[in-house]
Design a protein around this nucleic acid. Structure first.
Length: 432
DNA sequence: AATCCACAGGAAGCCCGGGAAC
DNA sequence: GTTCCCGGGCTTCCTGTGGATT
């Protein structure tokens, strides 16, 4: 061991001294693109065969791709896309692929603007000054015609990949897709083909039949990986990521098995392996063990919960805090009406704007989608139809995160609605 | 079979802050 | 500065609904 301060690394010395575990941990991140995608050859081949006409200057069919998260959809499409661009360059037929993530780019304006800006960037390279479409300001039709101009100017075949296309459709309807699918009829020198990637099999219910038939000329399904396939994927990555013998025998099968339970999510499997490695690394041990994997599983869950709750906007935090108070008052499940009541008291005490019940139901639905609470719509006959809400997650963590927000700190306050609930549940306990 | 509760959740529109163009 | 556009958060108004109760 070097003397304290004797190395240039100083304080950091002991954290990077462990060379037993990682060779290259970047390999385990999901942004990393491996050169081989195990168990996805059939899908890759069919995408390639559908896109191949692009190399003959013909318009490839549009494709819809389905599959749960972490089944290799995006990776496969990116792989085929880059191969297509490469092949296009070799034979001198311009083929370009633009990848958009509709979770972020979720309005018509943004989709069109993003495509046009990407095209311009490639066209202009670095030397030419670019005008660029601003992120807001223009009328949408102007963006659309600018995009058409760009396409005409650049020529060739453009493949637009709309990742998480279901988010786009749910948020802003199918107008974007309608416009994109008919853009070819207004183009002379270039062609557009669309690949839609969706986690949700039923999102096509929201589509106009004309859009659907045009968009789903071809459909490809990515089935979930089973535990054995996940093992193969992990082994392949582990080879580059970890030092030799850094992994105990059962580590990879355990990661694979845990992720297989989560609908065969390869991303989850890689996260487990990486975090387990990091934990072992920090412990300065020789090997990653199954214990580390189990610790990693807990850590991933709490970390994402904490991250999620702490980035919530104030009003959502208030709603969540209202639910937390009810839970602490002894209620296991509650209805949206009750949440609204408590929230009202709370917002008043904290001097927040008081939102309407309609807005609160939306916020509750968002919390449900984030997995912080779980809700289900129940009909209680004469007593109406409502949403039953429960929180199974770790209360302690949520409460800790919320109390970091100054406004919610020290709020063991006496809200009338909560007191009422407390006395009701005490009475129930008394009479039982 | 009819009624009716307590909401769910869709549609439209307002307001505000960001920006562009004139 | 004025007038146009976009998008997000929100309200207002509204119709729809499963099943216990009448």
């Amino acid at each position: 061991m070097p003397e304290e301060g004797s190395s240039a690394l100083g304080l950091f010395q002991r954290y990077i001294a462990n060379k037993n575990i990682f060779k290259n941990r970047e390999v385990l991140r999901h942004t990393y693109r491996p050169s081989i995608l195990p168990h996805r050859l059939p899908q890759i081949n069919s995408i390639a065969s559908i896109l191949a006409p692009a190399l003959k200057r013909e318009t490839p069919s549009n494709i819809l791709i389905y599959g749960k998260t972490g089944t290799g959809k995006t990776a496969s499409v990116r792989y085929v896309g880059s191969e297509l661009e490469k092949a296009g360059r070799e034979i001198g037929h311009a083929c370009r692929v633009i990848h958009l993530n509709c979770e972020v780019i979720d309005t018509q304006y943004r989709v069109l603007a993003q495509i046009a800006n990407c095209l311009e960037e490639e066209e202009a390279g670095s030397e030419k000054m670019k005008s660029g479409i601003p992120f807001t300001g223009w009328p949408t039709d102007q963006v659309y015609s600018e995009l058409k101009n760009q396409l005409e100017a650049s020529g060739g075949v453009l493949v637009i990949v709309l990742d998480e296309i279901d988010k786009l459709v749910k948020k802003s309807g199918d107008e974007t897709l309608y416009n994109l699918t008919r853009i070819n009829s207004e183009l002379n020198s270039s062609r557009v083909s669309i690949i839609g990637i969706s986690n949700d099999l039923r999102f096509t219910d929201f589509l106009d039949p004309r859009v659907l038939s045009s968009l789903s000329e071809e459909e490809i399904v990515f089935p979930p990986y089973d535990a054995n396939q996940l093992c193969d994927i992990l082994r392949q990555r582990a080879e580059d990521a970890f030092m030799e013998n850094a992994l105990e025998e059962g580590v990879i099968p355990l990661c694979a098995a845990l992720a297989a339970q989560e609908h065969g999510d390869a991303r989850r499997a890689l996260d487990l392996l990486r975090v387990a490695g990091e934990l072992a690394d920090r412990e300065n041990t020789e090997k990653v063990t199954e214990r580390h994997v189990k610790m990693a599983q807990d850590k991933i869950e709490t970390d994402s919960l904490i991250e999620c709750v702490s980035t919530l906007p104030t009003q959502s935090k208030a709603v969540l805090y209202a639910m937390l108070l009810m839970k602490n008052a002894g209620r296991q499940v509650f209805t949206s009406g009750e949440v609204v009541q408590v929230y009202r008291d709370l917002a008043q005490t904290l001097d927040l704007d008081i939102l309407t019940p309609r807005r609160i139901t939306d916020l509750i639905s968002e919390l449900n989608m984030l997995g912080v609470v779980s809700t289900r719509v129940v009909s209680r006959g004469r007593y109406g139809r409502t949403k039953e809400i429960s929180m199974e997650g770790s209360m302690a963590q949520i409460s800790e995160v919320l109390s970091k927000d100054r406004r919610f700190k020290e709020q063991s306050m006496m809200l009338p609605s909560i007191n009422q609930m407390k006395s009701v549940s005490q009475m129930k306990g008394f009479f039982r």
